[in-house]
């Protein structure tokens, strides 16, 4: 029950994150080109496009991480791992998962603190067209939380593999 709910939730979240990612990529393409046109044809360079492209990259890291992990696209050094049986892989995953969780919990915990600090400082980009930074900062722990959900879901699957008595296959 928990497993099925978690599975549906992470799937929905990652699909939504992927969709935001599409938008961000198209944004970078369209506005990267318009910036040049504004500079050359209108002699009126934009003072905000460059900054928003950088902000888009941070958001792309947020949503891209969620989408990529959900679709098993995080690269591993599977030199030994690749040849392990499903069960052995699951055991290795369970052993290393605490390190991933440690990193993600820190990202959420310290990321939330950084977001609060940003709000307290009322951080804006020091550009001539200022853009508020704190919404971007708060997106980071949020992304960390969703990535953590996916890691936990995978951990539960691994535990099921180890203790669920499923046949050991290569």
């Amino acid at each position: 029950m928990l497993m099925r709910g978690l599975d549906a939730l992470t799937r929905a979240i990652s699909e939504f994150a992927g969709w935001i990612g599409w938008f961000l990529i198209l944004y970078c393409m369209a506005f990267g080109v318009s910036d040049v046109f504004m500079r050359y044809l209108l002699n009126n360079p934009s003072q905000w496009i460059g900054t928003t492209l950088q902000a888009a990259m941070v958001l792309l890291a947020c949503v891209g991480g969620i989408y990529s992990l959900q679709h098993d696209s995080f690269v591993k050094l599977d030199l030994f791992y690749a040849n392990a049986t499903t069960r052995k892989k699951a055991i290795l995953d369970v052993l290393t998962a605490p390190i991933a969780i440690l990193f993600l919990v820190t990202l959420i915990w310290k990321g939330y603190e950084a977001g609060q600090l940003s709000l307290m400082l009322n951080q804006w980009t020091p550009t001539s067209v200022p853009i508020p930074i704190y919404p971007i900062k708060f997106a980071i722990p949020l992304a960390g939380f969703f990535v953590l959900l996916i890691v936990i879901k995978k951990l539960l699957v691994d535990l099921q593999t180890i203790f669920g008595g499923e046949p050991d296959e290569a």
């Binding site: 500079r39 009126n44 360079p45 001539s128």
Partner: peptide
């Protein structure tokens, strides 16, 4: 950039 555009220039970031 604020100064440059005030002077009539086109600031590029």
């Amino acid at each position: 950039a604020i100064f440059h555009s005030t002077m009539g220039g086109a600031p590029v970031s």
